[in-house]
Simulated assay, not measured.
Amino acid sequence: MRTYNMQMVDAQAVNQSNGFTLIEFVIVTAIIAILAAVALPRMMDAQDNAHESSVEGVGGALASAVILVRSQWVANGFSGAVDEVTGYGNDDIATSSDGWPTDAGQGTGSNNSDVMDSAERCKRLWDALLVDNAPSADNDLLNDPDYQVDTISGNCRYTYRRTDDGYDIEYNARNGAVVTDIDT
């Protein structure tokens, strides 16, 4: 009988260690719920911060490119509007009479006006000023671009589309200003 009792004890020990008790399950669930309540808002903030940083970075890159084109225009000795600034990118960026980028890829058909009147011109500038792996910009939303291109008050506006927070970058060809607007 002694052997039988040992087998019974061993069977009971096995049965007792095969799972969680109801109290353990409730405690684990409560801990997970608390962690989720604390961590989820922080993760959402991190995602918002990533979008903001992305837009600010692209705005800075665009501003740098505008300055570089104007610097190349000055270095080339120009003093008026030109159709092609050699020494930057594909040598196909047109400028205003003050040397700020106004068009790209149009050669002698470039629009040198510092009033940006079409989204297509703004898109050409975006593509010519920024590197090939820059976020996409287009006025045709069927192409699912990262930025929607349009014009506002004679300026190019690039509205970030990966969030509904109203982030945009505006380029003023009259004075070369690039303003990144993060509505917070």
Results as ranks from 00 to 15, higher is better:
Y88D: 03
D10W: 12
D132A: 14
D168M: 14
T163R: 07
R161P: 07
Q7I: 09
I32R: 00
M116F: 04
T95C: 00
P101S: 01
A81Q: 10
D91N: 14
N49R: 15
A94N: 05
R157Q: 13
A37E: 01
W73H: 07
D138N: 14
S53P: 11
S96W: 00
G77P: 13
F78K: 03
Y160T: 04
Y167K: 13
N18Y: 10
N76V: 07
D164T: 15
Y167C: 04
I27G: 05
N133E: 12
M116G: 04
T95A: 00
G87I: 00
A119V: 03
N175P: 05
G19P: 03
R174G: 07
V178G: 07
Y147N: 06
F25S: 15
E170A: 12
G57I: 06
S53R: 14
A173P: 11
L62T: 00
Y158F: 15
N143F: 07
E24K: 09
Y4H: 15
A75S: 14
I31Q: 07
P41Y: 11
G57W: 05
V178I: 06
T108S: 15
A39V: 08
N133P: 05
P101L: 01
Q7A: 11
R42S: 09
S71V: 05
V178R: 05
D48L: 12
G176F: 04
V58Q: 10
N76W: 08
Y4F: 14
P41L: 10
N172R: 11
C122T: 06
N90V: 06
Q12E: 14
R121T: 10
E84N: 15
G80N: 10
P101W: 00
R2Q: 14
W73E: 04
R70M: 06
Y167I: 02
S79F: 08
D140L: 06
G59K: 06
Q72V: 05
G60C: 05
S97F: 06
M116V: 09
S64I: 02
K123H: 05
A30L: 10
Q148M: 13
D91K: 08
D103Y: 01
I23Q: 13
G87F: 04
A137C: 06
Y147I: 13
G154E: 09
R161D: 10
D140V: 08
N15T: 09
G166W: 13
D114T: 04
S17T: 08
N172F: 02
L62F: 02
A39M: 13
A134Q: 05
S71F: 02
A50Q: 14
F25E: 13
R174A: 12
N175T: 01
S118I: 01
A46W: 12
G105A: 10
D103E: 01
G59P: 05
S17Q: 14
E170C: 01
G87D: 10
S64P: 00
